[in-house]
Amino acid sequence: MFKTVLFPIDQTRESRQAAEVVANVVKTYSSRLIILSVVEIPEEGESTNPEMTSAAAIAKLLEDAKTLFQSEGINSETIERQGKPAFTICDVADEIEADLIIMGCRGIGLTEEGVTDSVSNRVINLSPCPVLVVP
């Protein structure tokens, strides 16, 4: 049913918590797991968090995630991209023909003010496949 699962990650607690659900789904369906990290390119005048954009930090994040899944007996592939997170996640899902996207959620999209800023809300609306959001 879910041959290919896309797991977009960042350095949030919510991403780490979603990893358990990802492991369960991937094991249950013997899925191919793709771990994605999107480095957001700031628009002119926006400040960035150097921790979130450092190539070394992203490489470590992806390697740590891969190691975590390996310890569960799950092989995974990693992809690093630059761009707007929601659009990039959906583009990659389309490219790899993902059957499911599993992602963590900070909950900011649950308020009216946060709806337009929520990456998970945008992914739900743009995704070429089902999206499982782990609160």
Rank of each mutant, 00 (worst) to 15 (best):
P130R: 00
E63Y: 03
T28S: 08
I124N: 12
N75L: 07
I41Q: 00
F87H: 15
N121Y: 14
F69M: 00
R16G: 07
Q70H: 07
I35W: 05
T12Y: 13
E80V: 04
R122W: 04
L132D: 02
R32A: 00
V115C: 01
D10R: 04
P8F: 00
S47I: 10
D10V: 02
G107P: 11
E44Q: 07
L33P: 11
V134M: 06
G73Y: 01
L132A: 05
G45T: 01
L6Q: 00
Q11I: 13
N49Y: 04
V38E: 06
I9Y: 02
T111H: 14
L126R: 06
Q17M: 07
V115S: 00
T53M: 09
E72I: 03
A55C: 04
T53F: 10
E20C: 03
N24C: 13
G83I: 05
Q82S: 13
R16L: 05
E14H: 13
E51I: 08
S127Q: 13
L6A: 01
L6H: 00
E77W: 06
S127F: 13
T88K: 01
A59Y: 10
V131C: 11
V26Y: 01
G83D: 06
P135V: 15
E63S: 03
T12V: 15
S127A: 15
G73T: 05
A23D: 04
G109A: 13
D99K: 10
T4S: 10
S120D: 10
L62W: 06
E51P: 09
N75V: 06
L61T: 10
Y29F: 15
I79H: 07
E46F: 01
T111M: 15
V133W: 04
M52P: 04
Y29G: 09
G107Y: 08
E113T: 05
Y29E: 10
I102V: 14
G45I: 02
L62M: 08
R122I: 06
S120G: 10
R81H: 14
A93F: 11
I35V: 09
T111Q: 15
A93Q: 10
P50G: 00
L68R: 00
K60A: 06
V92N: 04
D99N: 13
V5G: 05
D99M: 11
C105Y: 13
I96R: 00
P135T: 13
S15M: 08
N24K: 12
A93C: 12
A56I: 11
D94N: 15
A19I: 06
E51W: 07
L36D: 06
V92W: 02
R32F: 03
L6S: 02
A59V: 12
